[in-house]
Design a binder for these strands. Structure first.
Lengths: 209, 209
DNA sequence: AGTGACCGACCTACTACTCGGTAGGTCGCG
DNA sequence: CGCGACCTACCGAGTAGTAGGTCGGTCACT
């Protein structure tokens, strides 16, 4: 998501006005917005900052996205297409369904920017009248649904102590988020995927000691 | 934290300049800032908004707190004094040490504003150069330390499957945060304290089925 | 000739913050 | 008791800078 080339605001925007025609400028804007939302949040990010990083002016950004909210929604849609859509579309009943969640954690460990962006925007969506609110309500409902299906498939009725798959899935999703938050705050002292694996093991082997 | 009386910006500030002399105006500002940070986040809150809610002008706010960052730090200090300081100062080895965490969850269920404020500010502190960053790094370290001590006291060596108290404490804290996030997004479909209790039971009775 | 892709200039509203005041209370002193 | 010195608690006006967004244009390509 971060662009390693020199498309920063240091060069005058007009210089490269027609340069990257082959590359999709709209995607550049999307990438820049993603990065900045992860760095400063939605409310903390200005359209001009997005524009500068994408190598055009603020009005150029508004040419592609009619306003700031639309831009945020477009960024969020990217998440849907990448993560959620793919990760729960696995064939049901293939045994290790919970591997999908573990894989999501492992993927997150390699992409702190993605995790950070989601963590920041999810919490920010709790604020009044936040445009991402509906997105995250739906996302978590879907995550829980998918995780519950995975739990049912993998653990079946062998859940400890009268826990329902729905309860377990909420716990799993909660642990993912909470671990990632701690990991983002102190990357060196929290190993999120390992701890998530521990929780999973705890659920799978309820009679070990 | 919300003030039920009429101290809103609708009345002209000068009207009540000397009225509430007995009440501490500084505390009014603190309360207003707390509420607004929970509603709009730190970056989304303006000094004028804080001032209006506290019933004075923006310059009046700056009279008590030399700048916005100082105001945030003062609000955060309130959390420390209320929650953390009290909740882990229990006599060690009194048996049900983990009850403190459960009590914290139960308390949170009655104070969504407190939970929301902490969730929003914690995530926002992940953004670059956020003044609350150090606070939350320290807070989570302390939470984990306290929880680990509680785990050691209550579960002793009876942890399942080679899990260390430190790992369990990170999981517990993570579950708290994650559950609260889901609860804040959809209060009716997530019962945070109950789910936390389920996790706790899971840890205590590793051989039940 | 039209269309997509922008930019320059501009607008209004708001941001955190500063400066210089003033109203009223507290204090010591004669 | 009365008087000036000082202090706290603010407010009015103004600062430079930035916010999101509009309008009208220009340039290259089809």
């Amino acid at each position: 998501m971060t662009q390693p080339d020199g498309h920063r605001g240091d060069r005058h925007p007009a210089d490269q006005r027609r340069s990257g025609r082959s590359r999709n400028r709209r995607d550049d804007v999307l990438r820049a917005a993603f990065d900045l939302f992860a760095e400063r949040g939605y409310r903390g990010t200005s359209l001009s900052a997005v524009a500068a990083r994408a190598g055009l002016t603020q009005q150029g950004v508004l040419h592609y996205f009619s306003n700031k909210e639309t831009l945020l929604l477009a960024v969020l849609q990217l998440f849907d297409e990448r993560d959620a859509g793919r990760l729960f579309s696995a064939p049901p009943g293939d045994g290790a369904a919970l591997d999908h969640l573990a894989a999501l954690m492992a993927y997150g460990a390699t992409r702190p920017d993605v995790v950070r962006s989601l963590a920041i925007l999810a919490a920010e969506s709790l604020t009044d009248d936040h445009p991402a609110r509906a997105f995250f309500v739906a996302r978590y409902a879907e995550l829980r649904r998918g995780a519950a299906a995975a739990v049912r498939a993998e653990l079946g009725g062998a859940l400890p102590d009268g826990l329902s798959p729905e309860e377990v899935s909420a716990l799993l999703v909660a642990a993912m988020d909470g671990l990632q938050l701690q990991w983002l705050l102190e990357p060196d002292s929290v190993d999120a995927p390992a701890l998530f694996a521990a929780l999973r093991k705890l659920l799978r082997n309820p009679s070990s000691q």
